[in-house]
């Protein structure tokens, strides 16, 4: 389980996160939504210990990290048991997509996944030997996801991973995320696509949705959040997102593509 408590993050004296509390339970999906600039990516980086919080506590799998660090203390973040997939993919440009997936596995011989399984799973056979700059954005995104899934993390933070995927690929990602949940992997999914969030979350599994607004968790709820948001601000946000989201879903319907 990944827990963040009282997470504050300041950049040049400007406070971006104001004491955020959040949990990502094992075998559950937590969705983080919020308007642009609300601090979603900053929170993901703080939870992943890539940019350590200015203040607060992050706990993961028995490890406890308290901030600010004392003196010259250094931490050993729990990567790749806790890993991140970024919106911008961050694939290594001098390696082919296959090599991007294979390289981290060289240091993890115990991984159950073979690269070929993942290539098959993400339907990457036709382009897996291309370099990132010769692949489409969607293909790069799939390679980034395959690289992270190959590591078999205990918890995975996914930052706007569907932003460059088409409906069919998004459906494939949803299926895989649900399969990972079955295996006990905890996930924090940052998205602005409410339909994507709705399809991921399950009432029965105890999944959670967090609404981040101006660096604060303005609402934390279960799936009922979509039907009865707790605050006026959340209602307003959902309304605006649903307006745009509804139109995009309508478009996909016309193309014969409800999310599979």
């Amino acid at each position: 389980m990944l827990i963040g408590r009282g997470i504050r993050k300041c950049f040049n004296g400007r406070e971006v996160l104001h004491g955020v509390d959040i949990e990502v339970s094992s075998g559950r999906i937590s969705v983080l939504v919020g308007p642009s600039g609300s601090g979603k990516t900053t929170l993901v980086r703080a939870l992943a210990l890539l940019d350590c919080p200015t203040e607060g506590r992050v706990a993961f799998q028995g490890h406890d990290y308290s901030f600010p660090l004392r003196g010259r203390a250094r931490i050993r973040p729990p990567w790749p048991e806790l890993t991140v997939v970024f919106q911008q993919h961050f694939l290594w440009p001098h390696l082919t997509l296959r090599q991007n997936i294979e390289l981290p596995l060289r240091e993890r011989p115990a991984s159950r996944h073979t690269v070929d399984d993942l290539i098959e799973l993400f339907r990457m056979r036709d382009f897996v030997d291309r370099y990132p700059n010769a692949a489409s954005i969607g293909e790069r995104q799939r390679a980034a996801l395959a690289r992270a899934f190959a590591l078999e993390p205990k918890c995975i933070l996914l930052d706007e991973i569907t932003s460059s995927l088409d409906v069919e690929q998004t459906g494939s990602v949803i299926r895989h995320l649900l399969a990972l949940r079955q295996r006990g992997v905890g996930m924090l999914v940052v998205t602005h696509l409410l339909e994507f969030a709705r399809r991921l979350l399950s009432r029965d599994e105890g999944d959670r949705i967090f609404f981040l607004d101006e660096g604060r968790i303005a609402a934390a709820a279960g799936v009922e959040f979509f039907d009865s948001p707790a605050t006026e601000r959340a209602r307003e946000f959902l309304h605006s997102m649903d307006y745009w989201g509804a139109s995009s879903i309508c478009d996909t319907k016309h193309k014969g593509g409800y999310l599979p």
Binding site: P77, F86, W92, E107, A148, L151
Partner: peptide, 28 residues
């Protein structure tokens, strides 16, 4: 920096990061 970040979250050791990621990119 994003290539170092990717190496970190993928659990690459410092040695692998230098030899397999940083050095080839910098050489190029």
């Amino acid at each position: 920096e994003q290539y170092n970040v990717a190496a970190k979250v993928c659990g690459l050791s410092a040695r692998t990061t230098i030899l397999k990621i940083q050095l080839p990119i910098i050489l190029r």
